[in-house]
């Protein structure tokens, strides 16, 4: 039997995504549903988790009202992400702009800036952070900048901000390898004709940055924001993930752990949704202008 070419085309498409569909049901959807059921149940028998009774949102309520550890840890992860993400974006953008210039040893710098990515969120990195390497890397610069005289001059408010900056800067930089390369690829795709036209019209570098580079880069910035947020919330070293893994595998509170992980995921989803709405508006506006 010969199929109509239109049907055939659709069928071929489905053959290609078939592995994903199978994988989705096996390794994603069924665990997902099971995890939701667990989060609204109580288990009496640990083996095979057979005796489940529905208890509604008890675990969710308990997380916010009864658990003294949950909220501080959750807030910690949220603050870290909300502070680090803009820092990662700004620094990787600056570095990418510098690397996109015609400079010597560009290859060397690009390779170096990507190196910490190899440590990623692996155990080696967590050991290094535990030993305080991120502070050691900046201690020299910090001592140079924050001498006692300067501390007195600028007052404790500024000193705190600078302190906070130095305590985060190393980890921020070490996490920006992928973002630098993505920004770089975006910068190189902007047509040189645009820049030339602007220079002919006597635009300054400053104008060019705000009126050409930044608007053209909004889709890439969006991509990087999403990547950074997902990367930071999925980091196995972060306090929340450690917390619910411990609850689940060491303390055997499987249902509560499932509820915690859902609260966590829903928060990430809401945050990404907000980013999406916000960026959509900006992208539409810049497109409208152009």
């Amino acid at each position: 039997m010969r199929l109509r070419s239109d049907t055939r085309h659709k069928l071929e498409g489905y053959i290609f995504i078939l592995p994903f569909i199978v994988g989705f049901f096996l390794f994603f959807l069924s665990p997902l549903i099971r995890s939701i059921t667990l989060s609204v149940s109580d288990v009496t028998k640990m083996v095979g988790l057979s005796d489940m009774t529905l208890v509604g949102f008890k675990h969710y309520v308990y997380a916010f009202t009864g658990d003294v550890e949950f909220i501080p840890k959750f807030l910690q992860v949220i603050t870290d992400t909300l502070v680090n993400t803009p820092m990662i974006l700004v620094f990787s953008f600056i570095l990418a702009i510098m690397l996109s210039r015609n400079i010597r040893c560009r290859g060397f710098f690009r390779v170096v800036f990507f190196l910490p990515f190899l440590l990623g969120s692996g155990y080696v990195m967590s050991v290094l952070l535990d030993l305080g390497l991120d502070q050691m890397a900046v201690s020299g610069a910090k001592d140079l900048l924050l001498t006692d005289e300067i501390k007195e001059l600028v007052g404790p408010g500024v000193v705190n901000v600078v302190d906070e900056f130095f305590s985060r800067i190393s980890t921020v930089l070490w996490k920006s390898g992928v973002q630098i390369i993505i920004f770089l690829s975006g910068l190189q795709s902007i047509s040189p004709a645009l820049y030339e036209a602007a220079r002919v019209d006597a635009a300054t570098e400053w104008d060019i940055f705000w009126k050409i580079t930044l608007p053209m880069m909004t889709p890439i910035i969006f991509l990087n924001i999403v990547y950074t947020i997902v990367d930071s919330f999925g980091d196995v070293n972060n306090a929340m993930i450690n917390y619910f893994t411990d609850k689940c595998f060491s303390e055997n509170q499987v249902c509560y752990a499932a509820a915690l992980s859902w609260i966590y995921f829903l928060f990430v989803a809401v945050l990404l949704g907000l980013v999406f709405l916000f960026m959509n508006r900006i992208v539409n506006r810049t497109v409208g202008q152009g």
Binding site: L26, F27, F28, S30, P31, L32, R34, S35, L38, L49, V230, F233, G234, V236, I241, F244, T245, C248, F249, V254, A257, A258, S261, W262, Y264, F265, V268, A269, L272
Partner: peptide, 15 residues
């Protein structure tokens, strides 16, 4: 991509 695999790690373990 968005859902951290840790969210479903326990049911996966059971599977």
């Amino acid at each position: 991509i968005i859902i951290p695999s840790q969210v479903i790690i326990l049911p996966l373990y059971l599977t």
